[in-house]
Simulated scan of single mutants.
Amino acid sequence: MSALQNEECVPCHGGVPPLKPSEIEGLLPEVPGWSLAADPSHIVRRWTLPDFQTALDFVLDVGEVAEDAGHHPDISFGWGYVEVSLHTHAIKGLQRADFVLAAKIDALPAAQLENAA
């Protein structure tokens, strides 16, 4: 698990620059499985899960963690999959908080189901 999961997710309200590409590349190894999206202002991860109910339960868990952090991802899901996209809306880019939330999501029990399958 990443040490990032123990950090507070500090919401960004704008007025700061997005992370530089070198900073992003330095943080990506801390959240294995996450990658830059086609739009490099986002990081994304997709999980393959056993069924719809497991995917839905995972989405609800992600939502709870995100709400507690005050940082809200874009989530898509369906039968057997969940995809989460993170970026900081206020700056239209990535900040450390995106990686902190990614690590917190990775620590959820359902995030480990894919590895056990």
Rank of each mutant, 00 (worst) to 15 (best):
M1L: 05
A3G: 06
L4A: 04
L4G: 06
L4S: 02
Q5Y: 07
N6V: 05
N6M: 09
N6D: 15
N6I: 04
C9K: 06
C9E: 01
P11Y: 00
P11E: 00
C12K: 00
C12T: 11
H13M: 04
G14T: 00
G15P: 09
V16Q: 14
V16S: 08
P18T: 00
L19S: 03
L19D: 02
K20R: 15
K20M: 10
P21M: 11
S22N: 10
E23M: 07
I24Q: 01
E25N: 14
E25C: 05
E25Y: 08
L27P: 01
L28Q: 03
E30M: 14
V31Y: 07
G33C: 12
W34Y: 11
L36E: 07
L36F: 03
L36V: 12
L36Q: 08
A37D: 15
A37H: 09
A38V: 03
A38R: 03
P40Y: 02
H42E: 15
H42V: 12
H42M: 15
I43K: 05
R46M: 05
T48W: 04
L49C: 07
P50V: 04
P50C: 13
D51L: 01
F52E: 01
Q53D: 15
Q53S: 14
T54R: 12
T54E: 12
A55D: 05
L56T: 06
L56P: 00
L56C: 04
D57K: 04
D57I: 03
D57Y: 03
F58G: 01
L60M: 07
L60H: 11
D61P: 02
D61W: 07
D61S: 14
D61L: 15
V62N: 03
G63P: 07
G63R: 13
V65Y: 04
V65A: 11
A66D: 02
E67R: 05
E67L: 12
E67M: 04
E67A: 13
A69V: 10
G70K: 08
G70M: 02
H71F: 01
H71W: 01
H72K: 08
H72T: 14
H72C: 10
P73N: 07
I75C: 09
S76I: 10
G78V: 15
G78N: 11
G80D: 13
G80E: 10
V82C: 12
V82P: 13
E83T: 13
E83P: 06
S85K: 08
L86E: 09
H87A: 04
T88S: 15
T88I: 06
H89R: 05
A90C: 02
I91F: 00
I91S: 00
L94P: 03
R96A: 10
A97I: 02
A97D: 05
D98R: 05
D98Y: 05
F99C: 05
F99R: 01
V100M: 12
V100S: 14
V100Y: 15
L101V: 10
L101W: 06
A102I: 14
K104D: 12
K104P: 12
K104S: 07
I105C: 11
I105K: 07
D106R: 13
D106G: 12
A107Q: 10
A107F: 09
L108E: 13
A110R: 13
A110N: 12
A111L: 07
A111R: 10
Q112T: 11
Q112G: 09
L113R: 14
E114A: 14
N115H: 14
N115D: 08
A116F: 08
A116I: 06
A117I: 05
A117N: 09
